[in-house]
Design a protein around this nucleic acid. Structure first.
Lengths: 331, 331
DNA sequence: CTGAAAGCGCTTACAG
DNA sequence: CTGAAAGCGCTTACAG
């Protein structure tokens, strides 16, 4: 690999001049400039981003820490983050934690060591101290989907309203026995959804049928088992709300196997709609979370933070998007 | 952020000693070692990976370049790559190209400039020259899923056999009019599948019903339209083979809308099975591609390449996995 | 308009 | 067992 020095030698100038010419950082005589570009071409020189980063203290790289992506809304968000980051000249370093605090800790420690300018994270909520530490050490941090730390900026959806409105919607459709497959309440989104669900049920004086995960709820198997549990609690259930799409898919599957018709016998609604809901054999009604917007905003906000001079960093901000109910066949 | 120098000062030793102690690169007196670790702790020192990389010429980072991931086998592979890479002490830099050669070129150019030690890619096939260039400049390259360049190592599945066997399987089930939704033949996997499909049809003297994409075939919409096209070509189609899962999902959807029963009237089989096939309302028979193994092997092979000294780099190798037919409800 | 020099934070022969 | 020095490939005041 050719270096600045090689180019300088070939163009018969100092490395500093080459640097200036390439970065357009001060006037360079057209003739020398031409010679330099000539040399760059013949040597097929590519600047070493490492050295650049070391010198300037900027990596132009964002760490993205999420639990998983396949078949979840995170896949949509990651894609959006990456597209937006590329537009702004940033690369993304992706880390899946599988919602394991140990893996998360490990990933964060790798990222902090000069790898990235900022970290976008949907955290387990178990490494708050570390995360605040990292932020304090000068790395920008942005929470997405899960607002686990008040002192760090976030971009999320309004999960409580989501669940609340969904109950109202189902009640308006005549449902009286509404089951709810939810996740671990240590995570803000599940807690929010639960509150919305409970509030609406109380207002309508309806009974509660709820399953709450201990561990990872983002799996077909968990959704499948939960749907069975709910039907055991009350065989006359007339609606199932699923915290996330994959649980909804599992619920539809269970209902089919039990010979129950969706939506006639039981309606199914997902509270975390993303790209898959509309593609199913029985397409699924869902509260669509604006994954693309969340990704875009997170990137824009964090880059703004990164680019701001030390003494005028933007203050902590929490952005909340509304979900949008998309009615499909399952309700 | 504390640096080596800070630690050295606090521990009253030279930076070189600190470096040696931390990296265990030569004997350091236990007492000084203790002092050093003490200092590291009180300063909460974290080595700057950038400087390390610059000095050692190693980034411990792999670039992963894929077209897209959501709802494709690439999501499974990416997860596998990342897990395996983490085990070996590598991070992964993810780039989605959306199968756009321009974006791919742009991503590759970013990656080459000192960002990564190696690149794992499912390429568009349009940047072969650049890719070989990058490889020649000393960055390891590994192709996955799509073997577009003979001169670069690859890990793929046997697409031809996949399609060939699927036709035989369907014929054995009594199918005579087998439609095939395929992708752009510039991409090796689609070409391979087509050859297998054609070969089997010829052997059975069966008619061909095939749709071939110009652009991106990895979408529900393309699958949907293709299924309709196939049924237009022959309303008595008794089987649809889909190159990838999402097309199969679309086909099932179309058949349902036309009032045709899967699998009684029309059987559906996907040639690129991944995590989703078993989770559907009508679970889908598919040729499961060993995504996990592909990811693991790709990482292991490329890291072996990276770690090998300059004069004994492993030679180009092409690894082919067999797919495994998983029979489910759709056939 | 362009050189020479210092330095980003580290590692590693070279001495002793 | 540990320092002092050079250098990885860049950028950026500082001169002139």
């Amino acid at each position: 690999m050719a270096t600045l020095k090689d180019v300088a030698k070939l163009a018969c100038v100092d490395v500093s001049t080459v640097s200036r010419a390439l970065n357009n950082t001060s006037y360079v005589h057209p003739d020398t400039k031409a010679r330099i570009f000539e040399a760059v071409k013949t040597l097929s020189y590519h600047p070493n981003v490492l050295a650049k980063g070391l010198r300037k203290g900027k990596r132009h790289t964002l760490g993205v820490v999420i639990p998983f992506s396949q078949l979840t809304i995170f896949a949509d968000i990651v894609q959006s983050i990456e597209t937006e980051a590329r537009k702004l000249g940033y690369s993304t370093l992706l880390c899946h934690t599988e919602d394991d605090p140990e893996i998360e800790r490990h990933s964060l420690n790798r990222l902090r060591n000069g790898f990235v300018d900022g970290i976008i994270i949907a955290s387990t909520g178990q490494n708050g101290h570390l995360l605040r530490d990292i932020h304090a050490s000068g790395i920008a941090v942005m929470q997405i989907i899960r607002k686990q730390e008040k002192s760090l900026s976030s971009v999320v959806a309004d999960y409580k309203s989501c669940a609340y409105e969904t109950v109202n919607y189902l009640v308006a459709k005549g449902c009286q026995n509404i089951g709810f497959i939810n996740g671990n309440m240590h995570l803000a989104p599940y807690k929010g959804r639960y509150e919305g669900y409970e509030k609406a049920l109380n207002e309508h004086s309806l009974p509660k049928y709820c399953v709450i995960a201990n561990g990872n709820c983002n799996s077909f198997d968990y959704g499948y088992q939960s749907a069975i549990d709910l039907l055991d609690q009350n065989p006359r259930l007339d609606a199932i709300m699923a915290a996330v799409d994959i649980q909804g898919m599992a619920a539809i599957r269970v209902l089919k196997e039990k010979g129950l018709n969706v939506p006639k016998d039981v309606k199914v609604v997902s509270l975390t709609g993303h790209s898959i809901g509309g593609l199913l054999e029985t397409s699924m009604t869902s509260q669509e979370i604006p994954a693309k917007d969340i990704g875009q905003m997170a990137v824009n906000m964090i880059v703004k933070d990164i680019d701001a001079p030390e003494n005028e960093k933007p203050s902590v901000q929490h952005l909340v998007f509304n979900a949008v109910m998309i009615e499909r066949e399952s309700s």
